[in-house]
Amino acid sequence: MRYSTDPADYEDYEDFTEREPRRARRRRFDDEPRPIRSGRLTEEAKALLENSKDDGPAEEDERYSSYPDAVPGPGPLPGWVLTEAAATDTELGVLKTGKEADVHLIRRALPGNERTSLLAAKRYRPPEHRQFHRDAGYLEGRRMRKSRELRAVQNRTAFGRNLIAEQWTIAEFAALSRLWQLGAPVPYPVQRHGTELLLEYLGDESGAAPRLAELRPDPGELDRLWAQLIEALTLLAEAGLTHGDLSPYNVLVHEGRPMLIDLPQVVELVVNPNGPAILERDVTNLARWFTARGRHVDIEQTTARLRAAAGMD
């Protein structure tokens, strides 16, 4: 995996943040817009969820599981994953909207059986509605099998934008699969089907787990969260990786445990010439959030510790 070697590509981390009214403008740690939906289910979605437990999904909301036709997640499969072709998927509502993708809540159930699971379906948006603002550096150096595909991507035709979306989907699925097998705190990637990822749902029936940025933890909880994040970042560094786009907006806190999300741009620290700078940026984005809430973090010391874990010193 290669990225841009131009340091200017990494200087303005917040250039793509949507502009908010001046009185409401605050520093953001992420280059994504404030989500239109942030994880709470609508009353309609809650009703669908409750009714589907007792009566099964309504016919108009139901489709057969796509698992048999999809690329499956890594093994060993968690026991809650339903692989049967007879299973059905029911749409329950939108969890989050973003510039490149929307996340929907899905209930997968096996008719005549009590086994069910909730899944998060991450779907990249149609070409005319997508803004792949990070794809220039992300796609640099990636080889296309056909010159026609390369030209389409370079010219950003509808076909090319679809190829970009598929590459992001493939990359995120591969990154999640690798990290999950390493034991990193990431949602289990159930399957990839076209430009849709089905992931382990992190949350409960009232809505998705909150982002780290949404929390107001007390000092003790701040210490615990930081210790768990450092453990996760160390695990990645020992594998020669860093998240590449880490921020309090790309960390969910599920059952007291921080979980890393949005991972199509995982960086190989030694291979990528900008690896050290990207690692420091990941640390800085988290450290500033913790420091602002009273838990001081030494950015230089923490980065050095992770560099050492990656064998870079």
Rank of each mutant, 00 (worst) to 15 (best):
R2C: 10
P7V: 09
D9E: 11
D12S: 07
D15H: 06
E18N: 04
R22Y: 02
R23D: 06
R26A: 13
R28P: 00
D30W: 09
E32I: 03
S38I: 03
R40W: 03
L41E: 02
L41I: 03
T42S: 15
A45K: 05
K46C: 13
K46V: 09
L49V: 10
L49H: 05
S52M: 13
P57Y: 03
P57W: 03
P57V: 02
A58Q: 14
R63Y: 06
Y64F: 13
V71A: 12
P72K: 05
V81Y: 10
L82P: 13
L82R: 06
A85H: 12
T90R: 07
E91Y: 15
V94Q: 09
V94A: 08
K99W: 12
E100Y: 05
A101S: 10
D102H: 03
H104C: 02
R107A: 04
R107I: 04
R108S: 03
L110R: 07
G112Y: 15
L118Q: 03
L119K: 03
A121N: 02
Y124L: 15
R125F: 08
P127M: 11
E128C: 09
F132E: 08
R134A: 13
D135T: 12
E140K: 14
M144W: 11
R145S: 04
R145V: 01
S147V: 08
S147M: 11
R148I: 10
E149K: 05
V153N: 01
Q154E: 05
R156W: 06
A158K: 08
F159G: 02
R161H: 01
L163D: 06
A165G: 02
T169V: 05
T169N: 06
A175H: 05
W180Q: 04
G183D: 07
G183F: 04
V186Q: 00
P189M: 00
R192F: 01
H193C: 02
T195K: 01
L202P: 01
A213S: 13
L215M: 04
D218G: 14
P219S: 14
P219W: 10
G220C: 05
L225C: 11
E231D: 07
L233N: 01
L235P: 00
N250C: 04
I261L: 02
Q265T: 05
E268Q: 09
G275P: 00
P276C: 11
I278V: 14
A287Q: 09
F290H: 04
V297M: 15
V297P: 06
V297S: 09
T302I: 12
T303K: 09
A304N: 15
R305I: 04
R307G: 12
R307Q: 15
A309L: 13
